[in-house]
Lab assay of single mutants.
Amino acid sequence: MQGVVKVNSALNMRSGPGSNYGVIGTLRNNDKVEIIKEVDGWYEIRFNGKVGYASKSYITIVN
């Protein structure tokens, strides 16, 4: 499943599904990501070869 990031500035990509996990990357508005699965309001995603987590509130699913 594919998604597009929708933010005003930047979205942190984290090592786990929560804001208490470390930041491993930064996503920008309109970045395209691969959604692997949903975990407690977060998406596990793949972006630029990295796998991490981002809040699903800021990612819109596209077909």
Score class of each variant (00 low, 15 high):
residue 2 Q to F: 10
residue 7 V to M: 05
residue 38 E to H: 05
residue 11 L to G: 07
residue 25 G to L: 11
residue 26 T to M: 09
residue 15 S to H: 09
residue 46 R to D: 15
residue 26 T to F: 10
residue 31 D to S: 06
residue 33 V to D: 00
residue 44 E to K: 07
residue 24 I to D: 03
residue 7 V to R: 07
residue 58 Y to P: 03
residue 10 A to H: 14
residue 52 G to L: 02
residue 1 M to D: 12
residue 33 V to Y: 02
residue 32 K to Q: 15
residue 21 Y to E: 04
residue 14 R to T: 11
residue 42 W to P: 00
residue 10 A to L: 11
residue 3 G to M: 03
residue 27 L to T: 03
residue 2 Q to T: 12
residue 48 N to I: 07
residue 34 E to C: 04
residue 9 S to I: 11
residue 31 D to T: 07
residue 37 K to Y: 09
residue 5 V to Y: 00
residue 46 R to E: 15
residue 35 I to M: 04
residue 10 A to Q: 13
residue 16 G to Q: 03
residue 54 A to D: 00
residue 28 R to F: 14
residue 53 Y to W: 13
residue 50 K to H: 12
residue 5 V to C: 04
residue 37 K to G: 10
residue 50 K to A: 13
residue 44 E to C: 04
residue 33 V to A: 03
residue 57 S to D: 15
residue 43 Y to Q: 01
residue 1 M to L: 11
residue 58 Y to W: 10
residue 16 G to K: 03
residue 28 R to V: 15
residue 9 S to T: 13
residue 24 I to Y: 02
residue 36 I to A: 05
residue 50 K to T: 10
residue 13 M to C: 04
residue 55 S to T: 11
residue 1 M to N: 12
residue 33 V to Q: 00
residue 15 S to E: 12
residue 62 V to E: 12
residue 2 Q to E: 15
residue 17 P to R: 02
residue 40 D to T: 09
residue 21 Y to T: 06
residue 60 T to Y: 12
residue 38 E to R: 04
residue 23 V to R: 06
residue 55 S to W: 08
residue 36 I to C: 04
residue 51 V to M: 11
residue 45 I to A: 02
residue 55 S to F: 09
residue 27 L to N: 00
residue 9 S to E: 14
residue 62 V to D: 15
residue 16 G to N: 03
residue 32 K to E: 13
residue 26 T to L: 10
residue 15 S to M: 09
residue 21 Y to V: 02
residue 47 F to G: 05
residue 33 V to I: 09
residue 4 V to R: 13
residue 52 G to N: 01
residue 15 S to P: 01
residue 29 N to P: 08
residue 50 K to I: 15
residue 47 F to S: 08
residue 20 N to S: 11
residue 34 E to H: 06
residue 28 R to G: 12
residue 59 I to W: 02
residue 49 G to T: 10
residue 62 V to G: 09
residue 51 V to T: 14
residue 7 V to L: 06
residue 48 N to C: 05
residue 50 K to N: 14
residue 63 N to G: 13
residue 14 R to S: 06
residue 14 R to K: 09
residue 39 V to G: 04
residue 12 N to Y: 13
residue 3 G to A: 08
residue 22 G to D: 15
residue 20 N to H: 14
residue 44 E to G: 05
residue 32 K to A: 11
residue 15 S to R: 06
residue 39 V to A: 08
residue 12 N to Q: 10
residue 49 G to L: 07
residue 60 T to H: 13
residue 52 G to Y: 03
residue 9 S to V: 10
residue 17 P to K: 02
residue 63 N to A: 12
residue 10 A to E: 14
residue 55 S to D: 15
residue 44 E to L: 07
residue 18 G to V: 00
residue 57 S to Y: 11
residue 46 R to Y: 15
residue 5 V to E: 01
residue 11 L to H: 08
residue 11 L to P: 04
residue 60 T to V: 13
residue 19 S to K: 10
residue 4 V to G: 02
residue 12 N to T: 13
residue 10 A to V: 13
residue 44 E to Q: 08
residue 3 G to N: 02
residue 61 I to Y: 06
residue 30 N to R: 07
residue 7 V to Y: 05
residue 14 R to P: 01
residue 10 A to T: 10
residue 56 K to A: 11
residue 41 G to D: 12
residue 61 I to V: 11
residue 6 K to P: 02
residue 23 V to F: 04
residue 1 M to I: 13
residue 8 N to H: 14
residue 42 W to E: 01
residue 19 S to W: 10
residue 4 V to W: 03
residue 37 K to E: 10
residue 55 S to C: 06
residue 13 M to Q: 03
residue 60 T to E: 14
residue 40 D to G: 09
residue 57 S to M: 11
residue 12 N to F: 11
residue 30 N to Q: 13
residue 30 N to H: 14
residue 40 D to A: 07
residue 2 Q to D: 12
residue 45 I to E: 00
residue 14 R to V: 11
residue 2 Q to R: 07
residue 27 L to I: 08
residue 36 I to S: 05
residue 63 N to V: 14
residue 29 N to E: 11
residue 10 A to Y: 11
residue 4 V to E: 09
residue 46 R to I: 15
residue 9 S to Q: 15
residue 63 N to Q: 13
residue 53 Y to K: 00
residue 55 S to Q: 14
residue 24 I to M: 10
residue 30 N to D: 15
residue 60 T to S: 14
residue 41 G to N: 08
residue 52 G to W: 01
residue 63 N to I: 11
residue 45 I to L: 11
residue 1 M to H: 14
residue 59 I to N: 01
residue 10 A to S: 13
residue 9 S to K: 10
residue 13 M to I: 10
residue 43 Y to K: 01
residue 25 G to S: 11
residue 11 L to F: 06
residue 55 S to K: 12
residue 47 F to W: 07
residue 12 N to E: 10
residue 6 K to D: 07
residue 22 G to I: 12
residue 35 I to G: 01
residue 16 G to T: 01
residue 22 G to E: 15
residue 56 K to W: 04
residue 22 G to C: 05
residue 20 N to C: 06
residue 61 I to T: 08
residue 62 V to K: 07
residue 38 E to G: 06
residue 28 R to P: 03
residue 45 I to K: 00
residue 47 F to C: 04
residue 59 I to H: 00
residue 8 N to S: 10
residue 41 G to V: 09
residue 27 L to V: 08
residue 18 G to N: 07
residue 59 I to R: 00
residue 40 D to K: 08
residue 51 V to E: 10
residue 10 A to K: 07
residue 6 K to A: 13
residue 56 K to P: 07
residue 42 W to M: 03
residue 30 N to I: 03
residue 32 K to L: 14
residue 21 Y to D: 03
residue 41 G to L: 08
residue 47 F to V: 13
residue 61 I to H: 08
residue 49 G to D: 14
residue 36 I to K: 04
residue 59 I to T: 02
residue 19 S to Q: 10
residue 14 R to F: 14
residue 26 T to S: 11
residue 6 K to C: 07
residue 43 Y to V: 05
residue 29 N to C: 04
residue 9 S to H: 15
residue 36 I to M: 09
residue 52 G to E: 00
residue 55 S to Y: 09
residue 4 V to D: 03
residue 7 V to K: 10
residue 3 G to I: 03
residue 36 I to N: 07
residue 37 K to I: 08
residue 47 F to D: 03
residue 20 N to G: 12
residue 21 Y to N: 05
residue 56 K to D: 06
residue 26 T to N: 09
residue 28 R to K: 14
residue 54 A to Q: 03
residue 11 L to I: 12
residue 2 Q to S: 13
residue 27 L to R: 01
residue 4 V to L: 10
residue 42 W to S: 02
residue 39 V to P: 00
residue 35 I to E: 00
residue 17 P to D: 01
residue 1 M to W: 11
residue 9 S to W: 09
residue 50 K to F: 12
residue 42 W to H: 04
residue 35 I to K: 01
residue 50 K to V: 15
residue 6 K to W: 03
residue 34 E to W: 05
residue 13 M to A: 08
residue 8 N to D: 15
residue 53 Y to R: 00
residue 62 V to C: 05
residue 19 S to G: 10
residue 13 M to F: 12
residue 49 G to W: 05
residue 20 N to A: 13
residue 1 M to V: 14
residue 5 V to A: 05
residue 17 P to C: 02
residue 60 T to M: 14
residue 11 L to W: 02
residue 20 N to Y: 12
residue 44 E to W: 06
residue 32 K to C: 05
residue 21 Y to I: 02
residue 42 W to K: 00
residue 28 R to S: 15
residue 5 V to R: 01
residue 10 A to D: 15
residue 26 T to Q: 10
residue 46 R to G: 11
residue 37 K to T: 14
residue 6 K to V: 14
residue 21 Y to R: 03
residue 29 N to S: 13
residue 11 L to A: 13
residue 45 I to Y: 00
residue 24 I to G: 02
residue 54 A to C: 05
residue 39 V to R: 06
residue 43 Y to T: 02
residue 12 N to I: 12
residue 56 K to M: 11
residue 5 V to W: 00
residue 13 M to L: 10
residue 3 G to W: 02
residue 42 W to N: 02
residue 58 Y to A: 14
residue 27 L to C: 04
residue 47 F to H: 15
residue 37 K to N: 11
residue 45 I to S: 01
residue 33 V to M: 05
residue 63 N to M: 08
residue 28 R to E: 14
residue 49 G to Q: 14
residue 13 M to V: 09
residue 19 S to M: 13
residue 14 R to N: 08
residue 58 Y to F: 12
residue 41 G to E: 11
residue 3 G to H: 03
residue 17 P to F: 01
residue 31 D to K: 03
residue 2 Q to Y: 11
residue 59 I to P: 00
residue 3 G to Y: 02
residue 42 W to Q: 02
residue 7 V to A: 11
residue 24 I to L: 10
residue 29 N to M: 08
residue 27 L to Q: 01
residue 15 S to A: 13
residue 5 V to N: 01
residue 21 Y to A: 05
residue 14 R to A: 06
residue 52 G to V: 03
residue 4 V to H: 07
residue 51 V to K: 10
residue 19 S to P: 15
residue 2 Q to L: 12
residue 26 T to E: 15
residue 15 S to Y: 07
residue 5 V to D: 01
residue 57 S to E: 14
residue 15 S to V: 09
residue 23 V to M: 05
residue 20 N to D: 15
residue 63 N to W: 02
residue 1 M to S: 13
residue 55 S to A: 13
residue 51 V to H: 12
residue 60 T to P: 05
residue 6 K to T: 13
residue 60 T to L: 15
residue 16 G to L: 03
residue 34 E to Q: 04
residue 33 V to W: 02
residue 35 I to D: 00
residue 61 I to F: 07
residue 13 M to W: 08
residue 55 S to R: 12
residue 52 G to I: 01
residue 49 G to R: 08
residue 35 I to R: 00
residue 18 G to F: 01
residue 44 E to V: 05
residue 1 M to R: 06
residue 11 L to N: 04
residue 51 V to A: 13
residue 14 R to Y: 15
residue 62 V to A: 09
residue 31 D to P: 01
residue 7 V to S: 14
residue 32 K to I: 14
residue 9 S to M: 10
residue 50 K to P: 02
residue 5 V to F: 00
residue 62 V to L: 14
residue 22 G to V: 14
residue 51 V to Q: 10
residue 34 E to K: 03
residue 21 Y to C: 04
residue 36 I to Y: 07
residue 26 T to G: 04
residue 40 D to S: 09
residue 9 S to L: 12
residue 56 K to Q: 10
residue 57 S to T: 13
residue 36 I to T: 07
residue 56 K to S: 11
residue 56 K to E: 06
residue 27 L to K: 01
